[in-house]
Design a protein around this nucleic acid. Structure first.
Lengths: 105, 105
DNA sequence: CAGTATCCGACGCGATACTG
DNA sequence: CAGTATCGCGTCGGATACTG
């Protein structure tokens, strides 16, 4: 993208990309209440497939929004949690929700 | 989407969809400063094709974020402007930009 | 349990040519 | 000037089967 346009949007698109994805907002909201295991997340989002859930979690982790802790046990156990960065996003999502509510009513 | 999940995300995904799109943030930002004609918008975003620009403008209009006024002249003239709803979105985009700046630094 | 591997259809977006 | 029509590609997400 050209510089003029970059300054116009000020990274908004890049920021949006961090939490746009079919299940990311739901995952972030879920983890804001509790650390969760992979299976728990999947159980609470019945419509998501393992492949897609894995992808979304990997992207969220790569973007620094969530952390992944693997316990070397048998059977394996993995815990996902919000990072500090991820927690900082929650108020913004609340603002977005509030904006939508205001305008629909 | 199921009800439980709907309540979890509180319409955030739907709200995000209103302004996620390759050029929507840039268009909204541009129109926040001035009413613009189709050709002016295109000239300021060289990378966008007519087809895609038309699509994005139509979606923004359908979502109530911008208005389209057509003057029956020859050659044709069309003016795009932010609606009140569209203007209400700008502070939110600024918040998103601010969030991103804070965390990158 | 927590993933991978593979296939596939839908959609977003860009390039190009044509039109009232 | 402000579009429409057509084509094609890349990415996203869903379905299913397999694995350490």
């Amino acid at each position: 993208m050209e510089n003029k346009l970059y300054h116009a949007e000020c990274g908004v698109n890049a920021a949006i990309a961090l939490f746009s994805g079919r299940w990311k907002v739901i995952i972030l909201h879920m983890l804001s209440k509790n650390t969760r295991r992979f299976g728990e997340i999947q159980a609470r989002i019945p419509a998501v497939s393992k492949k897609v859930l894995t992808e979304q979690l990997k992207e969220l982790e790569a973007d620094g929004l969530i952390s992944r802790k693997e316990y070397k046990e048998l059977p394996p156990r993995v815990e996902y949690a919000l990072t500090h960065f991820g927690k900082s996003l929650c108020p913004l999502l609340a603002d977005i929700a509030a904006w939508k509510r205001k305008t629909i009513l």
